[in-house]
Design a protein around this nucleic acid. Structure first.
Lengths: 241, 241
DNA sequence: AGTGGCAAAATCGTCCGACAGTCCGATTAT
DNA sequence: ATAATCGGACTGTCGGACGATTTTGCCACT
């Protein structure tokens, strides 16, 4: 039935070292901003070769736990940038061939809630970021790439204004997935641009005035529109194909 | 005002190489399961030293884009495991000192929706996984660690049953964050265990019978309970302190 | 005392070469 | 055909090396 022995997974040295350092960071024994000892020093402390240390460091660096400030040589402990980690998630999702419907359902779950909290908690600065994103969409509406980027920025700004890092980080990967889908759609569905602009205006107003329920409702409609646009696009494609 | 020239961020060779390979993978030019050329071979192709290749590979390996099947020497292209990527997210969130409230709000946004879809789409196998998790909680309710782990498994099973990878991957990090908070709470709030068991039973029933609305509603109540438990715990702590 | 400048020391990115342990494929023996 | 065997291919780790930059220590100067 069950095996008597489990296969022992031997961890190469570089992985063990990476784990040790990672644990220190997570346990706050090493705090963000702290400089790390030099590679040679670490090699000495761990009793391994510098090459091995380097490989270990690479692991933590890609996780965003280590990094260096521009132009500096020394490695420092860093807090993982949301951007970095969310791009990893969206890449993973892309590789798993998520459908637009999956993406859309997740957006329906997260974005309206984010908008709701944003209305209740946005700071003036966040409000302005939001406004700028909406303005940029209006201004660059003709340039597809810029318009899509503005849409993404708008969503990002809403999530940031929600004052909830978990929501923000859950939402970020969705944006990156939305972009390509939206790019295709926005060009093929004539009314899309106008509807987006209208929705952004209403959502912005609601958030500005602190109307949580309205913000939520309008965001829901906004997201629902994406699906409508997608369906129209698909029908068009089918007809065309 | 704005500088005329942006400081060019020098890409070390290992990063450039990692990017090139990553692009190939994302573009499906290298597909999951494909074996990667040997390090020596890659070094030759890129015209760099093997050490440099190794550092590049380390990047992709930690992102889960490369890996090796157990006991095999050769690296293969892999699809990032949800577990791996979500643990990265939750670590990032932990390092950003998210509050329980933030976590809870995100759960409130995602879990009920996941339950709703699960009721509509769960496969028999998923249903059984769900049942086993609930049973395990009931059985190990006395063992705090095991009970918490069972709760996490239950949520994971619900998300998996939702048939939506995006929701599942958005939800996974929340679990990892929930565990420690729940561990503390479950021991201090007497009625917590009974309420969890009850809620799991009802949610399971709803999902089993395909009652989407009920599944959603019960999950909402379930999550709400967590906050109540947390508040009670906090009050108790305050009184004690 | 504080500042500026400069040369030495430290550190990083990359390279070369090497070796033991292990996995794979082919060859040989049963 | 299957099992045992052997050599080659690779990975993990090591030691050393070198140019390019950054950091540091020190000294002169205001």
């Amino acid at each position: 039935m069950t095996d008597l022995f489990a296969p022992l997974d031997d961890h190469p040295a570089y992985r063990q070292i990476a784990n040790v350092i990672e644990k220190r960071i997570v346990a706050r024994s090493l705090r963000a901003g702290d400089p790390l000892p030099s590679e040679m020093d670490l090699a000495r402390q761990f009793g391994v070769n510098r090459s091995t240390i380097r490989e270990a460091i690479r692991e933590l660096e890609t996780h965003g736990l280590l990094g260096r400030v521009r132009g500096e040589k020394r490695l420092r402990v860093t807090r993982p940038e949301p951007r970095r980690v969310s791009s990893g998630v969206s890449r993973a999702l892309a590789l798993h061939d998520v459908t637009f419907l999956e993406l859309w359902e997740a957006m329906m779950a997260i974005e309206p809630v984010a908008a709701q909290y944003a209305a209740a908690r946005r700071s003036p600065a966040q409000l302005q970021t939001l406004m700028r994103a909406a303005a940029r969409f209006k201004r660059e509406v003709a340039d597809t790439a810029a318009a899509v980027s503005a849409v993404v920025d708008f969503f990002t700004a809403v999530a940031a204004a929600s004052g909830n890092q978990v929501l923000a980080l859950s939402q970020a990967p969705l944006n990156l997935l939305l972009a390509p889908a939206l790019t295709r759609m926005i060009d093929r569905v004539p009314q899309a641009r106008a509807r987006i602009q209208d929705a952004q205006g209403r959502i912005f107003e609601a958030i500005k005035l602190g109307r949580s329920e309205q913000a939520r409702t309008w965001m829901e409609k906004h997201i629902r529109d994406f699906k409508r646009g997608y369906d129209i696009d698909r029908q068009a494609s089918l007809v065309a194909g």
